[in-house]
């Protein structure tokens, strides 16, 4: 009996609503049309149990039909436009992702090639080469055509111990040595140890580095030379800007 009472309640409510809306209507000219739609709604409610028996419930059917109509209609193009905008935004997002992925793969490939070249030409063991690619417009006039450009190269040489420094030197010594030697010749060899950014760290601890300065000289100049040759080679072979190449020692 519950479905009967629910159905009756629905029918009564719809009829009351319909009469109320009849009162609310602004003018006579619309009346016939509104009455037609209202009577159709009442009919739909009356037929509700029957429709539910044959197919699914009329309310869900109606909502599906109305949403379908909304999508097709020109008058409610706002919703469709929103969808289109969403699609466009998603498309551009996916495009950016793909671009980034492509650049990453290309960068890895280039890095591999650079590593091989460095090892062949200089005989210096290379721990890792990182290449950052970025897209830049081909020419000023057409901004949609972009070509990848190598924006930064980081060559990481093996750490002090791995490169065959004498065994009695401690790790800390090796690091301070490199920094001490590099400062006067103004090469941006960076050491990334725990001490933080190179110059500030080395000047703040002069007592540590000062004591090893004589031993540092040979090792440091050696590294600088190596890094300079690597940099020159990369700059000439890959047509790069010198400032975009960074040669580092591996952080301990």
């Amino acid at each position: 009996m519950t479905w009967l009472s629910g159905w009756l309640r629905e029918v009564i409510m719809i009829v009351i609503l319909a009469s109320f809306i009849d009162l609310l209507l602004p003018s006579r000219s619309m009346e016939r049309y509104v009455k037609l739609v209202m009577s159709l709604l009442i009919l739909l409610t009356l037929l509700g149990p029957l429709i539910k028996l044959l197919t699914d419930s009329p309310a869900s059917q109606l909502s599906a039909a109305i949403s379908k109509q909304d999508q097709e209609s020109i008058w409610t193009a706002k919703g469709a436009k929103g969808n289109l905008n969403q699609i466009l935004v998603e498309a551009s997002k996916i495009k950016l992702q793909q671009q980034a992925q492509t650049l990453k793969f290309a960068g890895e490939e280039v890095a591999q090639r650079m590593k091989e070249q460095i090892q062949q030409q200089t005989g210096q063991k290379v721990e890792e080469v990182k290449v950052a690619l970025s897209l830049q417009p081909v020419n000023q006039t057409s901004s949609d055509q972009e070509s990848p450009v190598i924006s930064a190269v980081i060559v990481i040489l093996p750490g002090a111990q791995a490169s065959g420094s004498t065994g009695n030197q401690q790790q800390g010594l090796g690091q301070s040595i490199a920094i001490e030697a590099i400062q006067p010749v103004q090469v941006d060899v960076q050491v990334q140890p725990e001490e933080g950014s190179s110059v500030a760290a080395s000047t703040s601890q002069p007592d540590n580095s000062q004591s090893q300065s004589e031993a540092a000289q040979t090792e440091g100049t050696d590294i600088v030379e190596k890094s300079n040759t690597i940099r020159d080679m990369l700059v000439t072979m890959w047509d790069l800007k010198p400032e975009s190449v960074t040669v580092q020692r591996k952080a301990e």
Partner: peptide
């Protein structure tokens, strides 16, 4: 009453 009816009205 189903909301879809009311919305239509």
């Amino acid at each position: 009453v189903k909301m879809i009816y009311l919305k239509t009205i």
